[in-house]
Amino acid sequence: MPSETPQAEVGPTGCPHRSGPHSAKGSLEKGSPEDKEAKEPLWIRPDAPSRCTWQLGRPASESPHHHTAPAKSPKILPDILKKIGDTPMVRINKIGKKFGLKCELLAKCEFFNAGGSVKDRISLRMIEDAERDGTLKPGDTIIEPTSGNTGIGLALAAAVRGYRCIIVMPEKMSSEKVDVLRALGAEIVRTPTNARFDSPESHVGVAWRLKNEIPNSHILDQYRNASNPLAHYDTTADEILQQCDGKLDMLVASVGTGGTITGIARKLKEKCPGCRIIGVDPEGSILAEPEELNQTEQTTYEVEGIGYDFIPTVLDRTVVDKWFKSNDEEAFTFARMLIAQEGLLCGGSAGSTVAVAVKAAQELQEGQRCVVILPDSVRNYMTKFLSDRWMLQKGFLKEEDLTEKKPWWWHLRVQELGLSAPLTVLPTITCGHTIEILREKGFDQAPVVDEAGVILGMVTLGNMLSSLLAGKVQPSDQVGKVIYKQFKQIRLTDTLGRLSHILEMDHFALVV
């Protein structure tokens, strides 16, 4: 994948999101292997301009796509893939009243899908469409860049269908997702969380590099694949309309690839034109409109599966009536509230959605109805927002919020430890010299600072030695090549209790 991002070429006709291997024109390309080798690009942008032909009021008969309808489940399912879809609609009884809503608040519980998330729908649909058009064949390999849930859905379907599955996901995604993927037989590649989507090191860039190296491999490409919004247009939206008897006044959905909100909203605009569509985008993402909503100094966020630093091709923002931004604290607070007060075992993005819903639905009156999409299960986040310690460490809970008995030293300040200034190293000294210094002084790690004293990161003896043994660096290389740029900081005025929580999850903390 090139470091400079080429513009994806656009073909003359058809839909841009065809499933299957992508040609340089962004659509299915038939021909000899030699032709494909000559024409197939190194990668295709996940934010390529959409060429979708959908228009409100256009006859369904003019759609270029294969459409399906929700099917009634048999008493005995032939395999677990038949437990994807037909998820329950559940009334939220307490939270709406707590925040003064007059309307009825309903939750579409997508964590009841077989793999635990709304992404099971698009995973199965992308595979079925690729099999139907002859792209996927027995023994082929599926590769997908994902925040985890699409990966789980694909790995689940691949396990049943017999495909090899490789999932490329950023490091910030939970260990629970990784464990589930491994249990399903998927191979996992992790990428830096802070890598831009168009960087060769991003999950998108690495996935395309693997595709170019592995024979008979395919990126189904949830960011561009029409099967993504079509899955929701054909099934999720129809289920909502049936469950609500066609009567709903507002739908609120958090947005990642945009397939969920695009597919549902398009069908609702056709069948229930008075329904307002509300999009939820986390602070630090750029999906919301108008652009002024996205202006923030924050560039990272903890909530998973929603928000991006690019506009995915499948996201149709014209069908969203209003956007709201959400933050991590309210997302996790509301997710825990949904679990504790409503018994809905949902993930953090569901918290984002409901946090926005109780604001947006203030305009609705008694007798009206708001539906929220709860995308995934708490299963993926047992060591994250479900953990009091994690919430404390991230600053989303305060010590006084917890009532468990603490040891005698818990409320003492870090400054009472009488710490001395640490050994520091410059980023320009060599790895070999740094190892000598650390061994001589008896230290395992040291902060790396520039000549102005600005902290650049941390270097550890173990990481340097393993990097040297693996051949990633040489003793003569500058130590700046092996620094940890993500590390926890703590102030002298913070409590030892807070430091204790940090050290339970990290090997060190830097006192500043």
Rank of each mutant, 00 (worst) to 15 (best):
M173L: 05
V189A: 14
D133K: 10
Q55H: 15
S217L: 02
R91V: 04
G100N: 09
L42F: 10
S217Y: 04
G259A: 05
D221G: 08
S202T: 08
C109A: 10
R132T: 10
Y223E: 04
K177P: 00
R91T: 10
F111K: 04
D249Q: 05
W54Y: 08
D179W: 00
G57M: 07
E239F: 04
R276W: 13
P70I: 11
D129K: 08
D238Y: 09
E171S: 05
M169K: 06
K267A: 15
W208K: 12
V206N: 02
I166A: 03
A186L: 01
N216I: 05
E128Q: 09
A183K: 05
P138A: 02
R164H: 14
E201C: 08
N228R: 00
C103F: 05
M250H: 01
I219M: 09
K30A: 09
G85W: 06
S27G: 14
V204S: 04
P192G: 05
T193D: 10
P12E: 10
I261L: 07
L251C: 07
D120R: 02
N113D: 04
P12C: 04
V160A: 11
Y223I: 02
G274P: 05
V118P: 07
V168E: 03
E128P: 08
R196G: 10
L181P: 01
P170R: 02
P21K: 10
T236Y: 00
S27T: 15
V90N: 02
I166R: 08
P145V: 02
E128F: 11
L268C: 02
T193C: 06
L220G: 00
I167E: 07
D120L: 05
W54N: 06
P2C: 12
A237F: 04
G115R: 07
C52D: 02
T262W: 03
G14W: 08
S147F: 01
E187L: 06
P6R: 03
L251E: 05
T191L: 02
S199C: 09
V90E: 05
K267R: 08
V178R: 10
F99V: 01
L154I: 05
E110K: 04
K172R: 09
T87Y: 01
T53V: 06
T236L: 09
R161G: 14
G274M: 10
P138L: 13
W54M: 07
I142G: 02
K98L: 06
S217P: 05
E187I: 09
A195Q: 12
I80D: 04
V255A: 06
G153R: 03
Q222D: 02
E201K: 07
D249L: 02
A226D: 10
G116S: 07
L105P: 03
Y233F: 12
K25Q: 15
K269G: 03
G14R: 06
T262G: 08
S117C: 01
Q222Y: 00
K25W: 02
V255E: 08
E144Q: 07
T141M: 14
D133G: 05
P215A: 06
T141P: 08
G263N: 00
I76G: 07
D86A: 11
V90M: 01
D245N: 12
E29R: 13
R266A: 14
C15E: 14
K98Q: 13
S117H: 04
I143S: 01
H65V: 02
A60K: 11
R209N: 09
V252H: 07
S73M: 14
K172L: 01
G274H: 11
K94I: 02
K269T: 07
V90K: 03
R45V: 07
I264Y: 04
K269D: 02
P145A: 07
E37R: 06
P215Y: 08
R209T: 01
V189R: 06
H65M: 04
K119S: 01
N194H: 13
S73W: 13
G115Q: 07
G263A: 00
S254Y: 01
L101S: 00
R132H: 11
G116N: 07
S63P: 11
G148A: 05
R266S: 08
E40T: 10
S19H: 08
P78I: 06
D234P: 01
T141N: 10
H203T: 09
Q55Y: 11
R164M: 01
Q7W: 04
V168L: 07
T193R: 08
I214P: 04
T191S: 02
G57A: 15
P6F: 07
H67S: 15
T193A: 13
H203N: 11
A71M: 10
E187A: 02
P74H: 07
E110W: 00
E171L: 02
P64A: 13
I142M: 09
G11Y: 14
N216T: 06
